[in-house]
Nucleic acid binder design. Structure first.
Length: 475
RNA sequence: GGGCCCUUCGUCUAUCGGUUAGGACGCCUGGUUUUCAACCAGGAAAGAGGGGUUCGACUCCCCUAGGGCCUGCCA
């Protein structure tokens, strides 16, 4: 096995590392893009370098300002802040054309006058023969007419190999003759992606191109362009793609692909980052924040195989971060969720009740909607509508006991969960029964069947008046 | 058609020739017990298949199968 290149590649001193995330603004920030951005961020942090952002908007027909906003929004939500200014690729088209001219001057690119039909025929022929596309104009054949329109193509080399010593995938060797005479400049004079990336990465000083696996074979094409320009290519690291839970390529039918959908499902950004970095990379520790992971990050340890999305795992990671999250922040998120879900505005008292419940409840919730559900019992109004199971516990005999419990609890002066827990036990002893004869019914009276924490906690969170009132309602 | 990449429990992964193949999530069983959750204890669960190389292979090589990417005047 060939040794895998590492971050301490001799060509780069640690301080000079520059990475970049380069989405094309044709849609939302996808989960795979988010992970790519995260890996770029982590690596730059690890090496004390810079992490840049470039918007690849050279496809004028498909790029939209809304998509740019959505992507920036997503990155912002994940707190993946880039260094420096954002580079907008289309604005640099003149510079890209200049590079193309340079290649023509060097004889590594040429004017190609093939018409659409002609190109179709050439493509079909090369496809049938199993070889790369070669333009008939690569050796300076004269244009069909003086004013014929043309593209600029690279004159792909016919001999030798193109080696990409990929930091993640290992050595990838492709024969130069298997690479097409790629279009560099379109007939309208605008650069193609293949040219733009190369020029921009070079001009931005990018040392490590960390991107999705779907670009693996493009690396070879780009290396050819670097050579045609007599430039040194950066190091490449191709991260495998994320697949759906069925192992198939992620698509609409897998549900949420865009990061804002995860946000709407009630996941926390720090949990998303933690989960995403675990797809393909591990430090041996679970549930790390991106800040904790940065010093440990190592491209050479990133896995080569694609990984699947697992919502159960995400849930548990999210639960971990929910329990650690700031109470006020969770209260705000939960409040917003409830108000949006129910189309209501909660009053002051309800907000306070909700906020008070958060510290206790957050340890039991997987997501924000889950937390909202856990908090439901403090928000519902008297008289409670008991669900079937709760109703069935309200037998006459039990109601009498509930009455005695009401009297017992009314004497409680300290309304905190510890005292209340003891009070319940004392009451059970007094009654000569186990807590099992009291707990379920009391819970039913207190919550109507909604989920709730420990009874002592539930009583405390409800507050003396509300709790006693709910009990009284059932007597 | 051509080129290239990938393949350890259900899932994310550890292992870089010699391990009872480890952990996490999920799952199952038991415990605690006032619902749910949490928590504690235990358990089932993996090297795609076939050839080599080697004293010895999950680790190296080849083939097959299965997944994927590229093959655009998209990115």
């Amino acid at each position: 096995m060939l040794p895998r290149a590492r971050f301490d590649h001799p060509a780069f001193s640690p301080m000079s590392v520059v990475t970049r995330f380069a989405p094309s603004p044709t849609g939302y920030l996808h989960i795979g893009g988010a992970r790519t951005a995260l890996f770029n961020w982590l690596y730059a942090r690890r090496m004390g370098g810079k992490y840049l952002l470039r918007i690849e908007d050279t496809d004028r027909a498909r790029s939209t300002p809304e998509a740019i906003d959505a992507i920036l929004d997503g990155l912002n939500w994940l707190d993946l802040q880039h260094d420096g200014e954002i580079t907008y690729q289309f604005a640099r088209a003149p510079r890209h054309r200049e590079a193309a001219e340079q290649m023509i001057a060097r004889g590594t690119a040429f004017h190609c006058y093939m018409t659409a039909e002609e190109q179709e025929a050439v493509r079909e022929k090369s496809h049938a023969e199993g070889r790369a596309l070669r333009s008939p104009y690569r050796d300076g054949k004269a244009p069909p007419s003086p004013d014929a329109s043309y593209t600029v193509r690279i004159r792909a080399p016919d001999d030798g190999d193109v080696l990409n010593a990929d930091l993640i995938q290992g050595d990838v060797r492709i024969k130069a003759r298997d690479i097409d005479d790629l279009v560099l400049l379109r007939a309208d004079g605008n650069p193609t992606y293949m040219l733009s990336v190369v020029v921009d990465d070079r001009d931005m000083g990018v040392t490590h191109v960390i991107r999705g696996d779907d670009h693996l074979t493009n690396a070879a094409r780009q290396i050819v362009i670097y050579r045609a320009l007599n430039w040194t290519p950066p190091l490449f690291a191709h991260v495998s793609l994320i697949h759906g839970d069925d192992g198939k390529k992620l698509s609409k039918r897998h549900g949420a692909q865009a990061v804002h959908e995860w946000r709407d499902m009630g996941y926390l950004p720090e949990a998303m980052n933690s989960y995403l970095m675990g797809l393909g990379w591990t430090s041996g520790q679970e549930n790390l924040t991106k800040e904790e992971a940065a010093p440990l990050f190592d491209l050479a340890k990133v896995g080569k195989a694609p990984s699947r999305l697992d919502f159960k795992k995400l849930d548990s990671v999210n639960a971990h971060f929910m329990a650690l999250a700031d109470d006020q922040r969770l209260a705000k998120l939960t409040l917003a969720h409830i108000e949006q879900r129910d189309g209501v505005t909660l009053g002051g008292a309800e907000r306070i009740a909700l906020a008070n419940a958060i510290p206790v409840l957050k340890k039991r919730a997987k997501t924000i909607p889950d937390l909202a559900d856990q908090a439901r019992f403090v928000l519902i109004k008297r008289p409670l509508a008991l669900d079937e199971k709760a109703q069935s516990l309200m037998k006459d005999e039990f109601k009498q006991r509930l009455q005695r419990l009401h009297a017992h609890l009314s004497k409680e002066t300290a309304w905190d969960h510890v005292s209340l827990g003891s009070a319940l036990k004392a009451f059970a002893t007094e009654e000569g029964v186990g807590l099992g004869q009291i707990g379920p019914g009391l819970r039913a009276a207190l919550t109507g069947g909604a989920p709730a924490p420990d009874l002592g906690q539930a009583l405390e969170l409800l507050g003396r008046d509300e709790a006693l009132g709910r009990i009284a309602d059932q007597i």
